[in-house]
Amino acid sequence: MTLWLVVPAAGRGRRMQADRPKQYLPLAGRSVLELTLQRLHQAFPDAELRLCLDSDDAWFDADCVPFSRWQRVDGGQERVETVRRALTALEEEAAADDWVLVHDAARPCVPVADLQALHAALDDEAIGVLLAAPAADTMKRADERGRVSHTESRDDLWHALTPQAFRFDLLRQALDAALATGAAVTDEASAIEAMGLSPRLVRGSRHNLKITHPEDLAMAANILSVQAQTDTGAASASDTSFPQRGVSA
């Protein structure tokens, strides 16, 4: 059974206020995208990659891709459309029950141990899995005036991370339904949840930062420095898997 990796990297990253898309910003002597792909390759060297890029991308350098088997796919306007295009590119090759792992291009600090734990969790899984971290901060619900309405309980609240892994055909059906209905889909798990299914949580490290705002780049550099010093590829959390349930993020 082939393991497929999909990396959406077609975004412009305007919130970074940079001179280039955030996946091409320099980090620890390389680009964010190159570091992300290297982490994935460390964990899954034999996987096949579909890298989703803007059709007008002038920053991409194929030398940053460590995989021997990979293809470039033109991305869409939104994440859901981009991932669906990657699945379209796989239709002639992927089996219905092949696992597809989708990982954000802007998560270069994902621990290799977490990637391996996610993969191991697929052995006895019927629906799919995603890396996630339990909410640690006090959660406030705002009202229409921007004031605190009330405090939300942190119990059973999780931050959804990536990778997220689902069977090829199930993910295709879920994304098609989301596109047909115009449902708000911010990650692959939310599309699966809209079908009435509950993906399984695999607890991941808080090192798995998504670079979104300018200050995140410095935080990612610090995380990479710590990981290099401890020589762990970023140690994962000790408890890795949890019973099936929906994700609140």
Rank of each mutant, 00 (worst) to 15 (best):
A180Y: 09
A165Y: 04
N222W: 10
E144V: 13
V185E: 06
R141K: 15
L224N: 01
T138C: 11
Q173F: 07
N208L: 11
H213I: 06
A133H: 14
S153T: 13
T186I: 14
K210L: 14
T138L: 13
R172M: 06
P134N: 03
R167H: 10
A180C: 13
A165V: 09
I223R: 08
G146S: 01
H213D: 13
R145F: 09
D187Q: 12
A218G: 05
L217F: 08
S190L: 08
Q173P: 01
G204M: 06
H213W: 08
Q164V: 13
A160P: 07
D143H: 07
M139I: 13
F166G: 00
A177Q: 14
L175G: 09
S205T: 06
K140A: 14
A177P: 01
P134Q: 01
S225P: 00
A220G: 10
E144H: 12
I192N: 00
Q164I: 10
R154W: 05
M219A: 15
I211P: 03
L209G: 02
I192R: 00
L161N: 10
A177E: 15
D216S: 04
G204Q: 04
F166C: 02
H207C: 11
A178N: 03
S198T: 14
A191S: 09
H213C: 07
W158Q: 12
E215P: 15
I211D: 06
L217A: 10
F168A: 02
A220P: 08
I223F: 08
R200C: 07
P214E: 03
R145Y: 11
F168L: 00
S205E: 04
P163L: 02
E215H: 15
L179S: 05
A133P: 04
H213N: 13
D176K: 02
P214N: 06
W158H: 11
A136H: 12
W158D: 09
